[in-house]
Amino acid sequence: MKDPELLYLIGGVVAVLVIASLITETLCRKREPTPTLINLRQRVRAWWWMMLVFGSSLALGRTGVFGFYTLLSFLALREFLTLSPTPRGDHRTLALVFFIVLPLHYLFAWAPWYGMFLIWIPVYSFVFIPIRSALGGDTDRFLERTARIQWGVLTCIYFLSYLPMLLYLPIPGYEGQNAKLLFFVVLVTQISDVMQYVFGKLFGKHPIAPSVSPSKTREGLIFGGLAATGIGTALWWATPFHPGAAAAMSALLVLAGFLGGLVMSAVKRSLGAKDWGRGIPGHGGVLDRLDSLLFAAPLFFHVCGYYLSTDMNEAHGRFEVFDNILHLWQ
C-alpha cells in the first residue's frame, strides 16, 4: 500500500464506484425502479463492500492477502458442496478437505514452497480424497461423489490460489510491485464481467449458450470484452508489460473469465440452481462473483511467467520455505 501507483488504481476504482452510486441512486429516486435497476443498485453497493475487503487485505501485506484468499476458498467450496447433499460416508472426507487440504495448500503457497504448491492438490489430495471416501464404506455413486469433491477442490482452492501467488512472481525491475499485478488481474476480469452484463442488457440479442446462461450474449462478450481489454491496455503503466502485451494479457483474462463463468454456470444448472448462494446482494453467492477468476488466475499466472521468463523454483528455494515457516512458528 506504500506504492503510489497502487493507490492511484484503488483511487480510480473508488471514483468509479462513487459515480456509479450517484447515477443509480438518482435514477431510483426519479422514476419507479425496475428489477434491472434495483439489481444494478444492489451490485454497486455490494462492490463497495468487496472493494473495502480487498483493499484491506492488501493493506495487511502478503500474509493478509493469503489469509483473505484462504477465507474466500473456504466460503466458495462451502457454497459448491452445499448445493449437492453429501452422504454420511463423505463427511470425514469433507473434514479432510476443509481442515487439512485447504490450510496446508495455502501454507505451501504462503511459504512459498512452489513445488509442493503445484502438486499438493492435483496429485496428493486427489489420491487422499477417494481413499478417505472408500474407507467410509459407501459405494453408492462413488465415482460421481468423489469427482464432485475433487472438482470443487480444484476450482475453489487450487485455481483461486493462483491469485495471491502472483505476489511471488520474480519479475526483474518489478520487485515489490506485484500487488499491482494482482490488482490488474482482478480489475480487468471483474470489469469484463460488468461490461458484458451492461452491453448484454443494452444490445444482447444472440445468446451464446441459452440453456447454460441466457444472459451471456455475443454482443455482451464482444463489446464488453473490447471495453475491458481497452481498460486493461490503458493500465499498462501499472504492469510489467508494454501496451501491446498488456492488451494481449487483458484479452486472455476476458476470454478465460468468460469461459470460467460459462463452465461454472453449467455446473450450477446441472445441480438445479440459479445462484451459488445469497451472500452478496445482487450477485448471488461468493462463487458467483469468483467464477470468472477461476480459469483466468492459473492461465494468467503461467502465461505471464513464461512471457517474462520467470523461474519460481530458483527464486523461492526450500531454505526460504523453512525459514518462513520457522518465522511463523516463532
Score class of each variant (00 low, 15 high):
1 M>A: 11
34 T>M: 08
112 P>E: 07
16 V>L: 13
85 P>M: 01
168 Y>E: 12
196 Q>N: 08
131 I>L: 15
44 V>T: 09
289 R>M: 11
71 L>G: 08
55 G>L: 09
25 E>R: 14
17 L>A: 06
35 P>K: 09
146 T>H: 03
119 I>T: 14
225 G>I: 01
187 L>K: 03
314 E>V: 12
321 V>M: 15
193 D>Q: 00
24 T>H: 11
171 I>T: 08
62 R>T: 13
145 R>H: 06
93 T>A: 13
68 F>L: 07
213 S>Y: 01
279 G>E: 06
316 H>F: 05
285 G>H: 01
242 H>E: 14
274 K>W: 06
282 G>I: 05
198 V>A: 12
211 S>W: 11
48 W>Y: 09
77 L>C: 05
191 I>D: 02
87 P>Y: 02
318 R>G: 05
175 E>T: 12
127 V>Q: 09
32 E>C: 08
271 L>V: 00
206 H>C: 00
315 A>T: 03
99 F>W: 14
156 C>K: 04
45 R>E: 11
304 C>P: 03
272 G>R: 01
299 L>Q: 01
26 T>D: 10
86 T>V: 15
184 F>N: 04
250 S>I: 05
315 A>C: 09
63 T>I: 15
10 I>W: 01
270 S>M: 14
246 A>C: 03
192 S>I: 06
95 A>S: 14
67 G>Y: 00
40 L>H: 10
145 R>I: 01
90 D>N: 12
99 F>P: 05
157 I>L: 15
183 F>Q: 05
225 G>E: 03
88 R>F: 12
191 I>W: 10
229 T>V: 11
76 A>G: 01
260 G>S: 03
320 E>Y: 14
245 A>W: 12
272 G>A: 00
130 P>E: 10
47 W>Q: 11
20 A>S: 11
188 V>G: 08
1 M>C: 08
55 G>Y: 08
57 S>F: 02
119 I>N: 10
141 R>I: 08
172 P>E: 13
110 W>I: 10
233 T>W: 01
263 V>D: 06
185 V>R: 00
129 I>N: 01
176 G>V: 08
221 L>I: 11
47 W>S: 08
160 L>G: 02
227 A>R: 04
246 A>T: 02
83 L>G: 12
110 W>G: 06
3 D>Q: 04
104 L>M: 15
73 S>P: 09
140 D>A: 14
156 C>G: 05
78 R>Q: 13
213 S>K: 04
111 A>I: 00
138 D>I: 06
72 L>A: 10
142 F>R: 05
195 M>A: 15
34 T>G: 11
298 P>Y: 01
235 L>M: 12
272 G>L: 05
159 F>G: 04
18 V>A: 10
